[in-house]
């Protein structure tokens, strides 16, 4: 067979194959996703609360399974993907919805990437057009050769720009994440930091966020903010702040409330350790006693819970409803004995 014939045969076969592939592509229009597919993709795009950054789809925890079931339920009841994602965003914060395309930042991300692609392509074209205009001899090791300096300069400039950008981003990120001064603060926030008496109730969460972001070393405000989140059930945010506190001080409230949230996320053993640590710090801290007795009962260690419950009941500071619950729990334990 001559080369020409071979080429013709190959082209003919390839053309038929292309037609078949095109037919396949056109004949299989994307079907609307099934309910299972929607649940799967939604679960993959929502971060599991209390699961250390895993998505609902990836996490094997019971919490994640519950939320997957919730999503399936919402899908069945006719909620759209955006509605479901919005519900999660509202409940836990935007950060729990992966790829939140609702924010302008996502567009910025793609723009940054686009610029990178274009500058890379431009660099290759520059290399194609600009390299080696004229003779360039192989440089010997250890011998300086300045003939290539013109191009090296250009490469250097590009490299330096990238390096500077990386460093700048790093520095900005690092400084914003670490310390900030207190002097620039004004108004209520400044008063709080300066230790002046202010009414914390008058400050919004956003204002408190600003203060703690600018003053990471000031713990009081952060604790107050974390407590607000904790009480509102926004555990993701509460945990972030409590861990910041714990980085600086083993504060009993932070230890106790982290312990309780850990328990709620299905890790009672770890919770006990946090709560024990809280009590080691502050043996009279009532919430820690109440939390640990609940966790111990749940762990099937009621005898260890008993003394804590008695202390809770005996405490003059405990609210009445807690005393009542403690009494009920104690009664149950004694009945089971």
């Amino acid at each position: 067979m001559s080369e020409k014939t071979k080429n013709r045969v190959i082209l003919a076969v390839a053309s038929v194959a292309v037609v078949v592939i095109a037919f396949g592509a056109l004949n299989n229009p994307a079907l609307p996703p099934t309910a299972e597919e929607r649940v799967a993709s939604l679960s993959a795009s929502i971060k599991c609360p209390f699961c250390n950054g895993e998505s609902l789809a990836e996490s094997a925890s019971g919490v994640a399974a519950d939320y997957r079931a919730l999503i399936a339920d919402r899908v069945e009841n006719g909620a759209t993907d955006d509605e479901i994602r919005g519900e999660f965003a509202e409940r836990f914060g935007e950060a729990y919805v992966l790829d939140g395309s609702r924010s302008g930042w996502t567009i910025a991300l793609w723009v940054v990437l686009g610029v990178a692609v274009l500058s890379g392509a431009a660099a290759i074209l520059m290399l194609r057009r600009a390299t080696g205009r004229g003779e360039v001899a192989e440089p010997q090791d250890g011998v300086e050769d300045r003939r290539g300096a013109r191009i090296s300069g250009r490469t250097l400039a590009g490299t330096a720009a990238v390096g500077v950008a990386i460093i700048a981003i790093g520095v900005v990120a690092a400084t914003s994440l670490s310390s900030g001064g207190t002097d620039a603060l004004e108004g209520v926030a400044g008063d709080v930091v300066a230790g002046n008496e202010v009414d914390l109730d008058a400050i919004t969460n956003e204002q408190m966020e600003e203060v703690v972001a600018a003053n990471p070393e000031v713990i009081g405000m952060r604790l107050a903010l974390a407590r607000r989140y904790f009480e509102a059930g926004e555990f993701g945010k509460a945990l972030d702040h409590y861990f910041e506190v714990l980085d600086r001080e083993r504060h009993p409230e932070a230890l106790a409330n982290v312990g309780w949230m850990t328990y709620l996320s299905g890790e009672p053993e770890v919770a006990v350790q946090y709560l024990e640590a809280a009590l080691a710090r502050s043996p009279d801290y009532l919430p820690a006693k109440w939390f640990i007795s609940n966790v111990l009962v749940d762990l099937g260690r009621p005898l260890e819970a008993e003394p804590y419950l008695i202390e809770v009941m005996a405490s003059p500071d405990a609210p009445d409803e807690i005393k009542l619950s403690a009494a009920t729990l104690l009664q149950q334990i004694q009945d089971e004995k």
Binding site: S45, E94, A95, W105, A173
Partner: peptide, 21 residues
């Protein structure tokens, strides 16, 4: 990987970049 960190540092906004990106 670093975008959420940078955005949070620059603006305080929290966001996540996940699988689909």
């Amino acid at each position: 990987t670093m975008f959420p960190l940078i955005v949070e540092a620059l603006s305080g906004d929290e966001l996540s970049v996940g699988r689909s990106f």
